[in-house]
Design a protein around this nucleic acid. Sequence first.
DNA 1: ACAAAAGTGTTCCTTTTACACCCATGA
DNA 2: TCATGGGTGTAAAAGGAACACTTTTGT
Lengths: 228, 228
Amino acid sequence: MKLQYLEPVASITADCVIFGFDGKKMEVLLIKRGSEPEAGKWALPGGFMERRETLDEAATRVLEQLTGVSNIYIEQFHSFSKIDRHPISRVITVGYYALIDSTNQKLKPSWHASETKWFEINKIPKLGFDHAEIFQAALNTLKKEMAIRPIGFELLPTKFTLTDLQNLYEIILEEDLDRRNFRRKILSMGILTELKEVRKGAHIGATLYKFDKKEYNRLKSQGFSYNL
Amino acid sequence: MKLQYLEPVASITADCVIFGFDGKKMEVLLIKRGSEPEAGKWALPGGFMERRETLDEAATRVLEQLTGVSNIYIEQFHSFSKIDRHPISRVITVGYYALIDSTNQKLKPSWHASETKWFEINKIPKLGFDHAEIFQAALNTLKKEMAIRPIGFELLPTKFTLTDLQNLYEIILEEDLDRRNFRRKILSMGILTELKEVRKGAHIGATLYKFDKKEYNRLKSQGFSYNL
DNA sequence: ACAAAAGTGTTCCTTTTACACCCATGA
DNA sequence: TCATGGGTGTAAAAGGAACACTTTTGT
């Protein structure tokens, strides 16, 4: 039993399911693996936890190495440990999902990936390892969480229109929402700040809003809970 | 980098937060550690994941070794990886919570614990390692989950009264519930079977019910969602 | 006979749903 | 001038919250 201290039985990785939203589609960032194992296959970006870092730090590092962006919202969601999930040795992985505004990211597609690409979430290719399962678990978690916590804003630019926000929810929840009801509900929470700016599009301009995180935290501490 | 395959940097444990309900109080099962590290301190039961088992299997094994009971409901909730969380070596742990009916368990307080004891959840002693944090995370998860999934029944005997169920929810949610509203709501879900049996108590007898898991699964597959 | 828990309906209020027209703009 | 998306109110229905008395049984 004590031997476990000296001879750990498994390595540990952090794998990231990076969700992006471009205003129309939900996407996931995948890499084409440039080295064995599973070289040439598409997979979730991930990497080994190092001796001097926590899992959160490992996930953050993987993300920064891949995207060149820091301050990304990440959240751990589940750990995966099937015995043969890695073809070479025993590796357990801790799954994280990350939310970023994919319109705003200039990817650095370098690192140990031969290619880095956004895929629409219902058009993802066959994945290496058990990453299909991990992706599904992340998506299920995201669906649940987005309904009860204001994390959707992480997927939008700082300034967004109510239509942007509604589109996002419609895609995640996979149902159409009534525009008037949606607006009334989200505005009545009092966590959006209306800006004196309008986004000009092909037609009438749409008012921009931003998420008021301070106000949300204040309300939350008073028992308010986000619910869409 | 490749060395990671050969020399994992951390061991992996599964720690269990075992919740029990005795009809009146929510409790957690703790062990007094019989060996180093943290010998003599109270802690969550846990153990190393072995080479040939998954995390779920490790958690199940720990539980069976401790309680002598199998078929316990367990659920993974979070992984903890602070660098110095274990005093001897690098150990990350995957937290599980377990739900059992604590009136019905004859504990086998053997194993590598010198003592095994139920503690009321708001009267917990100082815990070793980072187990206080793990416990809190488990409790928070339980509160959220109990409101949206029918897992509370795992804490009750197979046959229970509506008052039992209400007491349980009142304790977990930390609020009083109106008896008539509670009954109407839970019965209207149609997932409880009324038995032709009555529990005799100090006063008038109370009708016993059981949870109809099949019916719940049927309803769930049709889009129904439990919500208390 | 009394104390203690079980059982039972109605009213009011809040929240959710369903639904349609006008407006401003760029092409 | 027309096509496109932005913005707005109301009525009906459903769901949630508040509330009190009677019954049964054991002591």
